[in-house]
Design a protein around this nucleic acid. Structure first.
Lengths: 191, 191
DNA sequence: AATATAATCTAATGGCATTAGATAATGAGA
DNA sequence: TCTCATTATCTAATGCCATTAGATTATATT
């Protein structure tokens, strides 16, 4: 009957990504996606195995994009500058792509090597931002965990509380960074 | 036909709370809840308006419980001790009741005064833990936001990364607390 | 033009939330 | 103890969603 829609896996994922940014990842359905692509729902199964597989694909895409942006953000920087570049790059990504950011927070299945590797790649990039602080491997992993906790918590809280004071989110963000810097420069005694 | 099941709103909420802790909030369905209560799904609508209303009720219950536990945790403590009591109490709650904790992280509708008030009550309790640091109102709100960001991020990350190093989560948790203490004791210059 | 391939469709299944309305169990008053 | 109102629960039905199977149509290849 109808003309072909000219879909491709890439196009499907791109629109899925846009939709999740606009309506939230949890509101992204096969139904909505098909409607946006002007196609019947079953058509999507030529490009995607399932809704779960779609979410996974978005997570991988998100991690790749995040890695890319973080890498650029810390290029040529070190110390305090690198740290701030990293933090702002991640926050900016979360603001520009809330759906993708949400996708990146999902936990991969323990046997999903590809997904796990993508996550590790991002962590490794983040670790480079701490080079100037002279941390051993375990300490730099710790620092990454601290930064990720702070940023993710701050971003999540901003979505939750929303308003209140206008500059609250930005102030808190900066204060958290300062706290991390204080911690890093006045490193605690290891027992 | 069948005997009455002897339900009550309280019982329904209690089982819903248990189920969300066991299977995750997002896996809590009217269907699952009805099955657990040995009753047909429509029966639940005598006690609950909708699935959304159930989630809201769990959020309120979670905020009340959290407020109670935090209040007890900081009773008679101040300064560093109060801060740690607060932090551990919240983390312990999240571990003991992952479903309820998740419910508490949902954002209330902007017009939902009751829900918002419950959230505010928790924040006020947390603010008391910072009494000894001599912060003005805005500073203590900031401190609460920092602590919440840290804890929520840390808890979320623990669920995400899971394992890796065994003590990583605990170490990160303590390091974040130390960072906050450093920030509070070496208060930044206000502009 | 004929055919193979691939993209899309229709039809069907089963799960879920929700509503409407029927039925059966309980408790209160005669 | 009987009657009746109340209310807890049920069955039936609707509509949305994800998914599968298999038919059909559009394009590319010869």
């Amino acid at each position: 009957m109808s003309q072909r829609a000219g879909l491709s896996r890439e196009k499907v994922l791109q629109i899925a990504s846009d939709l999740s940014d606009q309506h939230g990842l949890h509101n992204l359905s096969m139904s909505l996606l098909a409607a946006q692509l002007q196609v019947r729902t079953p058509t999507l199964y030529h490009y995607i195995d399932s809704l779960a597989a779609l979410r996974r694909a978005l997570a991988l895409r998100a991690l790749d994009l995040i890695g890319e942006q973080l890498g650029q953000a810390i290029m040529g920087k070190s110390g305090r500058e690198a740290l701030h570049g990293l933090a702002y790059a991640l926050r900016d990504f979360a603001q520009a792509h809330p759906g993708l950011y949400e996708a990146a927070q999902a936990a991969p299945a323990s046997h999903d090597q590809e997904w796990r590797a993508s996550g590790r790649r991002v962590v490794d990039i983040m670790r480079r931002a701490f080079d100037a602080y002279q941390l051993d491997e375990e300490q730099s992993r710790q620092a990454v965990r601290m930064l990720r906790s702070m940023l993710h918590g701050c971003i999540a809280l901003e979505r939750l509380d929303g308003f209140g004071v206008p500059h609250a989110a930005e102030d808190t963000f900066q204060a958290l960074l300062l706290a991390l810097e204080l911690y890093l420069t006045q490193r605690p005694p290891r027992d």
